[in-house]
């Protein structure tokens, strides 16, 4: 038996975690939350590198041995209440790259300057295509927002593949990434506008559909055509 019921490690070092999010602040938020809940049996520690650079910010929770990747500040509340306090891991944020051990992305290994995104390897996919992310950066059956040049794009993992849409709901410019989809219907939680996951067409009360982008997958990388 360990000294704590739940022990949480937030990577605040390594090659990319500190620049992919304010991870020092993550630690403060989680500590304040655990304290507010009166959970002295929970320990939040800053951690060194997990050798998963490029997938961050990363948080690991024991004893469940659950790894979270690509955590945003807006995700912390859910991780805190559901998992750290409630014991229920947050499945949508789980990290499962399918390989054991070290798993650094090339961007990191190539030594991209901290805070600077790696130059998109446009040539790999041909002109008109811009790299968005590795296919494994999008949670399976989930969705995630990425900056691509001047626009932000929502990449949706549908279960059978990927689709790319505008990142904000056409209703009130709320981030769709914070909504949910079930493989058929994508719902913006703010005011419950819904869209067809596969086409972006409006459903129910929604009065406008989602702008979609051409998307292709090559060698595990996702590319979009922004002119579409």
């Amino acid at each position: 038996m360990g000294q704590y019921d739940r022990h949480v490690f937030v990577c605040t070092s390594g090659e990319t975690c500190p620049t992919q999010g304010d991870t020092e602040r993550f630690v403060k938020i989680l500590r304040a939350g655990a304290q507010k809940a009166g959970r002295s049996d929970v320990r939040i520690n800053k951690s060194g590198c997990f050798s998963q650079c490029g997938h961050g910010p990363m948080i690991v929770v024991y004893p469940e041995d659950v790894w979270y990747a690509g955590v945003r500040e807006s995700d912390l509340e859910e991780i805190l209440t559901s998992h750290i306090i409630g014991g229920q891991p947050v499945d949508r944020l789980r990290y499962d790259p399918g390989v054991k051990g070290a798993n650094k992305l090339d961007v990191a290994a190539n030594g991209a300057a901290p805070g600077q995104p790696a130059p998109p390897p446009v040539a790999a996919a041909g002109p008109g295509w811009t790299r968005v992310c590795g296919a494994d950066e999008v949670p399976v059956n989930g969705m995630k927002e990425f900056p691509v040049g001047d626009v932000n794009v929502l990449i949706v993992s549908t279960g059978s593949g990927f689709v790319a849409y505008q990142a904000l709901c056409p209703h009130e410019a709320v981030r769709l990434e914070d909504g949910v989809h079930d493989g058929a219907v994508l719902t913006c939680l703010e005011h419950m506008w819904q869209f067809d996951v596969h086409t972006g067409a409006p459903l129910g009360d929604a009065e406008a559909g989602l702008k979609s982008y051409r998307l292709k997958q090559e060698s595990g990388e996702l590319y979009v055509g922004l002119d579409a």
Binding site: V180, H181, M192
Partner: peptide
């Protein structure tokens, strides 16, 4: 989230 995703209730 749960009612939309798991329960699949319409809004």
């Amino acid at each position: 989230r749960w009612l939309l995703r798991e329960a699949r209730l319409p809004p």
